[in-house]
Design a protein around this nucleic acid. Structure first.
Lengths: 183, 183, 183, 183
DNA sequence: CATGAATGAGTATTCATTCAT
DNA sequence: CATGAATGAATACTCATTCAT
């Protein structure tokens, strides 16, 4: 039941935005009564936040797995890149939802903190790559912006049907972006 | 007057979204009466669409200027990249607004067409680069996705204050992304 | 069980009014499940009515006991007055509940009839006192209004903590009000 | 407009209680649209509080006029008593509204303070009467409870149609209650 | 019989839009 | 043209009542 609500909300929030989605609409799509939503979530705000955190967690579990100890920076990059692509491929709507909503006023502090963690991890990877001399020695945040932005571009184009996120495309993109950041 | 309305709407739509912004709020920020909005725009929907098109036009004028005839593909790329960066630097809120809203249901066909044009132009540039043997011979759409995505990453990080979009940063990013797409 | 429900409802209705009290709230205070209320009462309306009648009955049993045959009108008056005061002292919440709710739309005919009986009895006592020449020869309803009103004033002030309804206070009030109605 | 809303609310709150009255119902009775209520009052709570204070003020203006300097305690009593009766006669619904609602949870502090003032004034009058040796030397609050209670009894019976609050009735009641409290 | 999740009609409140001034 | 009060449909949320367990 809770899952059905979250699934309905995910689709609708991604499609029409938070404020553009009416609670009864979520209920209808979930196949339940309007009032039942409030048995599971105290408010619409609480619902988006729960949704956001749920998917951010799943995202972390998919993407932020530690790479093999022996991996070279290039391999570490590939590891994370393929993780992100795999997530976007398996959960395209969730990927777009996380992308579009990560800043909105209705997200509370805890939800926003989750976003930060990802950035910090990426910045850390870049810093290590720079130290190892295999990544361009420039502001790590810039490289993070370019990498995550490129991935978001992929997700968006895939969502719009202008691109298919298959193995080959993902691999080609990985190679391109590695070229962008390598020393 | 029309300009003040559009300015107020731009800031609010970017900040709180279309559905999250009330018309009287726009009026208040514009320093006029609620009803006056409707002297200039027949509806809230018409207002966003006008706003979107207005900025898309300015964007085109800034970014889509033809590069010098004699420019090499690398120079053409730099020409467009710097154009986009300059726009984002001068109009950060508008850049984010265009980025976030380009898909929303309240945008009508004409507004959405504007977006497509940019993509097509980019794809065309990529195709020419490929033909000239200086750009990677892969799906042009993929490269467009990576380029525009990377630029959006820049814009977003700049908006969040994690990055400053100055000359140096822009130039470094340009170099990175050229490496990503060059043959 | 039924008693626990009625006790919970009494307190809440007195405190927050009928419409201001939610059924689940009554259940919580009674320590049972919401649905269980409906095993004992077909509806919220039926519950107030049962509550009202229950207490009106207890009130009648406490207050409307026949005075000794040989009692003088003064003694009869004292008998009833002390009965009312005793009830208010022992059941302050019920006294206030009966006082505040005796007219509400959700009370059905039978409940309202109970109220009437008390008035009629009082009016009858007054009439007899008038006939005996010891009570002021004016509209009995006026005297009833003053007497019952005075008693309600006592109950209210006691409930608000501005007065303590002890033996002495009750006796003093009795003497005052007898002076008010005596010939 | 504001007045029409307050008038409609007065009648409905008195009749069905605060929680028993729906905002659209108030609007309908006032002959305006539901939303218009909120142009004049920020919330339903604010509306009752405004209503309560408005009438408490009028009540004070009618009832709490200073008696003639030279008035004896008996005359002072009559002055106030007739003031209250006149108010109840002219504004029977308001009188009942003030009576029934003076304690409810939705009234804020300022509204409740108004009630206290009346009591204090009455207690002060009683104390002076006691000092002059013409009022019973007992707890002034008790006498206040009896007086105001008796008046409320009158108002209630009048409202229920069991009594008519004319000159004669008011005068008779005044005499009765003076007998109740005089030394 | 007790339970409490589910229901959906009903509530307070907001907001895009209109229109008399 | 500008105004902002008035409108009423739409929204988030509540609550009396039901019913499968």
């Amino acid at each position: 039941m809770r899952t059905r609500i979250l699934d309905a909300a995910l689709k609708l929030f991604e499609d029409k935005g938070f404020d553009g989605t009416a609670v009864p609409e979520i209920a209808r799509r979930a196949g339940i009564a309007t009032g039942s939503i409030y048995r599971h979530f105290p408010s619409k705000d609480a619902l988006v936040n729960a949704l956001y955190r749920e998917w951010k967690l799943r995202y972390s579990e998919t993407v932020l797995t530690p790479p093999p100890e022996s991996a070279t920076p290039r391999e570490v990059f590939g590891h994370y890149w393929r993780g992100m692509a795999a997530f976007a491929q398996r959960h395209p709507i969730a990927a777009r939802f996380l992308d579009l909503h990560h800043h909105r006023a209705y997200l509370d502090k805890e939800s926003k903190t989750a976003e930060r963690k990802t950035h910090d991890l990426a910045a850390q990877f870049v810093a290590q790559g720079v130290a190892a001399g295999v990544v361009r020695p420039i502001d790590p945040m810039l490289l993070v912006a370019l990498m995550t932005g490129a991935m978001r571009g992929l997700i968006q184009f895939a969502g719009d049907g202008e691109l298919v996120l298959d193995q080959a495309t993902t691999a080609a993109a990985e190679d391109c972006i590695w070229n962008a950041i390598k020393a």
